[in-house]
Amino acid sequence: MNSYYYLDAANQQQGPLDGNLLPSKGVTAQTLVWAQGMAEWTAAGQVAELQPLFQAAQPAQPQFQQPAQPQYQQYQQPAQPQVQQPEQPQYQQNYGQAQYQQHYAQAQQPGAQGFQPKPDNYLVWAILTTICCCWPLGIVAIVYAAKVNNLYMTGQYQAAQEASANAKKWSIITAIGGAVVVLLYVIFYVIMGAAIVSGARW
């Protein structure tokens, strides 16, 4: 399970924390959570991976959905043929979307932006590559790592995400480059060694 950030009762960002542990920290299906790779903060009950954790313990969810039901059917009836009516899953899907959009809108508000978690800047990898791979390219990754922190501090979350992606990209480029060089070197010597041994035998 992924690690999630969540908002506590005081709307303070907490975590990251393994998803399984979220309910023990008082996270409910309505609590906003965020994990690496998610576009926006989302109610925990809306995250596919977390849904099983809340389904058993959360009788509040169906209660919350029911009042909206008649309204929806009234609206849909004139447009849809009667056969469509019993199709319950479609309704729930639409409702989920609406709820998602609501949270999406909340996250877009300036006030809510303080909850964005800091994107990973992959600094450990950047430092490792500057030492192990002989490739000063790792410095590029460090510069991007510094940018992630700086942009995040000044509230430019979108740009911070991009810098984070760049820090990751350059760490990977440097690490793969270094690994390829090391691999080629070892293969070269194994072949050379084999050639010398077999040459000596003949």
Binding site: N121, L123, I127, P136, I139, I142, V143, A145, N149
Partner: peptide, 14 residues
């Protein structure tokens, strides 16, 4: 560990 001083210091020292 992630302060700007630390990161830029590292780059300069490097």
């Amino acid at each position: 560990t992630h302060s700007q001083w630390m990161l830029w210091g590292y780059v300069v020292l490097y």
